[in-house]
Design a protein around this nucleic acid. Sequence first.
DNA 1: CTGTTAGCGCGTTCAC
DNA 2: GTGAACGCGCTAACAG
Lengths: 339, 339
Amino acid sequence: MQGNRKSVKTGVRMQDVAARAGVSVMTVSRALSDPDKVSEETLKRVRAAVDDIRYVPNEMAGNLSSRRSKAVGLIVPNINNSLYSSTIQTISTALRERGFHLMIADSGLSLENEELAITGFLAQRVCGLILHNTQHTARARELISQIDVPTIEIGNLTEEPLDQCVSYSNFAAAKAMTVHLGRLGYRRIGFVSLALRNNDRAQIRYQGYLAGIEELGLPQDLSLAIETESGLQGGADALKRLLASHPETDAIFFAADVMAVGALFECQRRGWKVPSRVAIASFDDVDLLRHVVPTITTLRIPREEIGRRSADMLMARLEGRAMPKVMDLGFDIIHREST
Amino acid sequence: MQGNRKSVKTGVRMQDVAARAGVSVMTVSRALSDPDKVSEETLKRVRAAVDDIRYVPNEMAGNLSSRRSKAVGLIVPNINNSLYSSTIQTISTALRERGFHLMIADSGLSLENEELAITGFLAQRVCGLILHNTQHTARARELISQIDVPTIEIGNLTEEPLDQCVSYSNFAAAKAMTVHLGRLGYRRIGFVSLALRNNDRAQIRYQGYLAGIEELGLPQDLSLAIETESGLQGGADALKRLLASHPETDAIFFAADVMAVGALFECQRRGWKVPSRVAIASFDDVDLLRHVVPTITTLRIPREEIGRRSADMLMARLEGRAMPKVMDLGFDIIHREST
DNA sequence: CTGTTAGCGCGTTCAC
DNA sequence: GTGAACGCGCTAACAG
């Protein structure tokens, strides 16, 4: 198995199928891509030949010749994050059902990495791009518009998408949760976020929080908003810091990831009751939140639907069907025991 | 932006770069793929031209012509599962560093889906395949050996890999944890698994559990081993059922996913102490396990290293370097508060 | 319904 | 160090 990589691997070609079926190459091509255009008898023989010699079409050659491709490029900040991977999963399924392939890259929140990944995808001549980011380098924007690839942005609702946008408003969601906490009677509402630097979505959520505080008519205290690391540990750390500096805090809105759960565990360790000592709210309805004790109030972001709809929109574009530039899929507040 | 898909999109070709730089196409090709073979002056002009007209090489054409490709196909049971996605992430990074691309598909534990995905990848003429499954349809095996693509299996250690294998032994790991529990003094050790049907890894872990029970000299009671759904809910359900039918159970080994955490939450709801009422052990060291109260004993499987090494092995194969057929990366028992 | 001709954009091979 | 001819495996556009 390991050897003989020197010999030129020609592989089974369409020509071999044609010879075996006693037809021309073109007929084989048609039989495979558009069976209706070929007589039943011919079709049968071609299929038999394909089966006999285990022919697998060379899609690259087909793409080159037809100047089309069936590969879609997807760029997310991080593959190893259940929020993104649920979207990946949905997109993957939707594409496969229609005979398309998915290529994935991650940008790690760096615009330069995103540009690199975009270039890579364009070199592969993908037929469409799905980008979680809504910020891009100037060169990335230029390349996309020059090559003119349909592009769907999915990480945040923007008024001026590169091309099209399927998402929800991070601003509105963060504001809504803040107002929700205020209406429940909490007055000192803390906000915990991932690092704002180089993270426009985190920044926008922060703006939403501030807008919520303002709408509630509460005093604006910027020291109630802090940044922390991602993950359970980050949540625990943030809770400790915030309650050390502001013991009067009566609710904390953790605006990312599973930080809220980490904070809850820290409360359990300290024997603090949630929500009587401090209320906890989260962003994104991960499974965990409805299983912990107490269950945690959160925002449900329609991650799967964003995946499905963005794939739909891409397909529609490729078929020339008109589609709205911007699609807002909204969010819901899920009220649970922690608030 | 939306319109004009009728007109033939020619795009910027290497020929355009050549014209602008005042050299031949061949020189451009060399300048891009092997800069040393071109004079410094030429190189500079080519690069300037590339930059000016925003040329992005057509990799498909290059692949077709050179009969090589830089795409790797990866098939996992489920993209939306942090165990797999951590491997995906590592592989993705390792490949990108070497200029390769990653294509992903999921099989959903169905061999037929896996075969479909393999066919799709072979049609794309991927240069290598990484498969989480170690079981495949006959046709899949046939195709892979015929097209002769380097293939790494990573989901379980097998003596007879399709081609090569980088993994750990599910059998040894499950047995080791069972024996570990026995040595701690637990005598009625339950086993909770995902559905065994169509899941060879689950079956192998079950065999490992049985072997552990035997080594400990404990009575073999098959009713102590049950199946359940994945996820937190599945763990909670399993705990309820097992302790209802066998109240004397003093330890439970949850052999997949985050089921152990779901069971722990159920104990919290019932006010049962862990491990004094019942001990809990898990499979795979997900972050969550070390943050819950109490922390949960588990097996550390080197998911990231499996990803990195499998990518390494693929690269080595492509460069003709010899590599072992089977690489066992082992596992560790992480002893924590829950046992 | 089927075949023929002519490329797709690039790398290989060999000349210069 | 550079260029010309040729072909990779397939499909578009026509002709029959």
